[in-house]
């Protein structure tokens, strides 16, 4: 009979990585833009799953905020495990309440709500236009996000949709982005949008889950992202 062996409790748990889609559902997104976006997000979900399969210590929890006249949950407020996340068709109507969406996001990144052992959250903003909330309200919403420790540490990227850069406010969207080396991702056509959604979601997930410590107080995040894919202008394929 073998002698009893020492053992240890088995209560290990994966570390959570909270992922937020923040998606423009305003009237101007109607047609090809929203159809491409809906398709791209559905298609990228298996890619994110494949990546996290190589990181068994990571559990991605996903949610989605949609904004038009107001901001509301498309999937949420309860986060859904990536494996169970389903993207339903996003309908479009109304104005572009980006500031309200950022406020809703900031509320979820409150230190009391986020898990202490979580990876930096990933926040991807996708919009085709100018925020119709007042500039001061937009700036206040961003300030509220930056005031949150989790808001500062999040990987925040933005994708602008439009054939022409006059269709959106580049500087305004850039304020949301905290990876200045990446800048604003500009999708001029459906192919660009699919590429950028795929790159932003997968690169941010891998980067955020690398999980290295750094000295507290530094202003730049330590999440390292690879350069985004190059896109070739195609006048025949613009939105």
């Amino acid at each position: 009979m073998n002698a009893p062996q020492p053992t240890l409790p088995d209560e290990v748990a994966k570390r959570p990585l909270h992922f937020f889609w923040i998606v423009d559902g305003s009237g101007s997104m109607t047609g090809r833009k929203i159809a491409t976006l809906n398709q791209a997000i559905r298609e990228v979900l298996p890619d994110i799953q494949k990546i996290t399969a190589n990181h068994p210590e990571v559990q991605v929890w996903m949610r989605a905020i949609k904004f038009s006249n107001e901001a509301e949950w498309h999937v949420g407020p309860q986060a859904v495990e990536l494996e169970n996340f389903v993207w339903s068709e996003l309908a479009t109507q109304g104005c572009t309440g980006t500031a309200q969406a950022i406020r809703l996001l900031a509320g979820e990144l409150d230190i009391e709500k986020m898990p202490p052992r979580g990876f930096p959250p990933v926040c991807i903003l996708i919009s085709d236009g100018f925020c119709t909330d007042a500039n001061e309200i937009y700036d206040e919403a961003l300030a509220a996000l930056e005031a949150m420790p989790w808001g500062r540490r999040a990987v925040r990227l933005a994708i602008a949709i439009g054939s022409d850069e006059s269709e959106y406010d580049e500087q305004q969207l850039l304020k949301f982005v905290n990876h200045k080396d990446v800048g604003l991702l500009k999708a001029h056509n459906p192919s660009d949008l699919i590429k950028y959604i795929k790159w932003a979601s997968t690169a941010a997930t891998v980067g955020a889950s690398a999980g290295k410590s750094k000295d507290g107080g530094a202003t730049t995040g330590n999440v390292v992202l690879p350069p985004p894919p190059k896109v070739t202008p195609d006048p025949s394929q613009v939105f």
Partner: peptide, 19 residues
Amino acid sequence: GNLVAGETFSMCTEDAEKH
């Protein structure tokens, strides 16, 4: 404290002894 997502004070922080 308010350090999250892997943030930490460090020996290389300028005023490390205070932390």
